[in-house]
Amino acid sequence: MPEGSASLQLAVGDRVVYPNQGVCRVSAIDVKEVAGQKLTFVTMRREEDGAVVMVPEGKVLAIGVRKVASAE
């Protein structure tokens, strides 16, 4: 991610809310080559049905992904 860009610090195992998809758990953060460029992807699995969603790390905030609020 370019320096100075806002990002959401995620780790494998974090629970997040993905708008219009529901609650997901981060299952992987991997670098993949797409069209000759190396990009970091956040892979999330929906808790409702296990569907897998992959989002480029740089788009996580723009999409509206946020961490699940704690009970505290």
Rank of each mutant, 00 (worst) to 15 (best):
M1K: 13
M1D: 11
M1L: 12
P2H: 12
P2A: 12
P2S: 12
P2F: 09
E3D: 12
E3G: 12
G4W: 07
G4Q: 12
G4T: 13
S5K: 10
S5P: 13
S5F: 12
S5A: 13
S5H: 12
A6F: 11
A6L: 11
A6R: 10
A6Y: 10
A6P: 12
A6T: 11
S7Y: 10
S7I: 13
S7W: 08
S7H: 11
L8T: 08
L8C: 01
L8F: 10
Q9I: 10
Q9L: 09
Q9G: 09
Q9Y: 11
Q9K: 14
Q9P: 09
L10S: 01
L10C: 00
L10K: 01
L10Q: 00
A11E: 10
A11C: 03
A11M: 12
A11Q: 13
A11G: 05
A11V: 12
V12E: 02
V12P: 04
V12S: 02
V12W: 03
V12F: 01
V12T: 03
G13Q: 01
G13P: 00
G13L: 03
G13V: 02
G13C: 00
G13D: 02
D14H: 02
D14A: 03
D14L: 04
D14C: 01
R15K: 07
R15M: 13
R15I: 14
R15E: 05
R15P: 02
R15Y: 15
V16Y: 05
V16E: 01
V16I: 13
V16Q: 01
V16W: 03
V17F: 15
V17M: 13
V17P: 02
Y18G: 05
P19W: 07
P19Q: 07
N20R: 08
N20D: 09
N20H: 09
N20G: 15
N20F: 09
Q21D: 03
Q21L: 15
G22D: 03
G22P: 02
G22W: 05
G22K: 05
G22Y: 04
G22T: 05
G22E: 03
V23Y: 14
V23I: 14
V23D: 01
V23C: 00
C24F: 15
C24V: 04
C24W: 15
C24K: 00
R25W: 11
R25E: 07
R25M: 11
R25F: 10
R25Q: 08
V26L: 02
V26E: 00
S27P: 00
S27G: 03
S27M: 15
S27W: 14
S27N: 05
A28K: 09
A28P: 00
A28V: 04
A28D: 05
A28C: 00
I29E: 00
I29Q: 00
I29L: 05
I29F: 07
I29M: 04
I29G: 00
I29K: 02
I29V: 06
I29D: 00
D30R: 08
D30W: 15
D30S: 13
V31Q: 08
V31C: 00
V31G: 01
V31F: 07
V31S: 06
V31A: 04
K32Y: 15
K32I: 15
K32P: 01
K32N: 04
K32V: 14
E33V: 13
E33Q: 07
E33Y: 13
E33T: 11
E33W: 14
E33D: 09
V34N: 04
V34A: 04
V34L: 06
V34Y: 08
V34C: 01
V34I: 11
A35M: 10
A35K: 10
A35W: 09
A35G: 14
A35V: 04
A35L: 10
A35N: 15
A35P: 02
G36L: 02
G36I: 02
G36C: 01
G36E: 02
G36V: 01
G36F: 03
G36D: 03
Q37H: 08
Q37L: 11
Q37G: 07
Q37I: 15
Q37S: 07
Q37V: 13
K38E: 06
K38V: 09
K38I: 10
K38L: 14
K38C: 02
K38Q: 09
L39R: 07
L39Q: 09
T40P: 02
T40L: 09
T40F: 06
T40R: 15
T40M: 08
T40H: 04
T40I: 12
F41H: 01
F41N: 00
F41K: 00
F41Q: 02
F41W: 14
F41D: 00
F41E: 00
F41V: 09
V42I: 15
V42S: 00
V42W: 03
V42E: 00
V42H: 00
T43V: 14
T43P: 00
T43M: 08
T43C: 02
T43D: 00
M44Y: 03
M44L: 14
M44H: 01
M44T: 00
M44N: 00
M44F: 15
M44Q: 00
R45G: 01
R45I: 15
R46D: 01
R46Q: 02
R46F: 07
R46P: 00
E47L: 08
E47P: 01
E48M: 12
E48P: 04
E48D: 09
E48Y: 13
E48C: 06
E48L: 14
E48A: 13
E48Q: 10
D49I: 03
D49R: 01
D49H: 02
D49Q: 02
D49T: 05
G50K: 02
G50H: 04
G50M: 04
G50Y: 03
G50V: 02
G50I: 03
A51Q: 10
A51T: 09
A51G: 10
V52N: 04
V52G: 03
V52H: 05
V52A: 06
V52T: 09
V53L: 15
V53R: 03
M54V: 15
M54E: 11
M54Y: 10
M54D: 04
V55Y: 05
V55M: 09
V55T: 03
V55Q: 04
V55N: 03
V55D: 03
P56C: 06
P56A: 11
P56G: 05
P56V: 13
P56R: 06
E57H: 09
E57P: 06
E57T: 07
E57Q: 09
E57C: 07
E57W: 15
G58A: 14
G58Y: 15
G58S: 15
G58W: 15
G58E: 15
K59D: 15
K59S: 12
K59F: 14
V60L: 15
V60R: 03
V60E: 04
V60Y: 09
V60A: 14
L61P: 06
L61N: 12
L61R: 13
L61K: 13
A62L: 10
A62F: 07
A62R: 07
A62C: 06
A62N: 06
A62I: 11
A62G: 08
I63K: 07
I63V: 11
I63Q: 10
I63Y: 08
I63R: 05
I63C: 08
I63M: 14
I63A: 12
G64T: 06
G64K: 06
G64H: 07
G64Q: 06
G64P: 05
V65R: 04
V65W: 04
V65L: 12
V65I: 15
V65S: 05
R66Y: 14
R66D: 07
R66K: 14
K67F: 10
K67I: 15
K67L: 15
V68D: 06
V68G: 06
A69V: 12
A69H: 10
A69E: 13
A69I: 13
A69K: 10
S70F: 10
S70E: 14
S70T: 11
S70W: 10
S70L: 11
S70V: 10
A71S: 11
A71K: 10
A71G: 11
A71Q: 12
A71F: 10
A71I: 12
E72I: 14
E72R: 08
E72W: 08
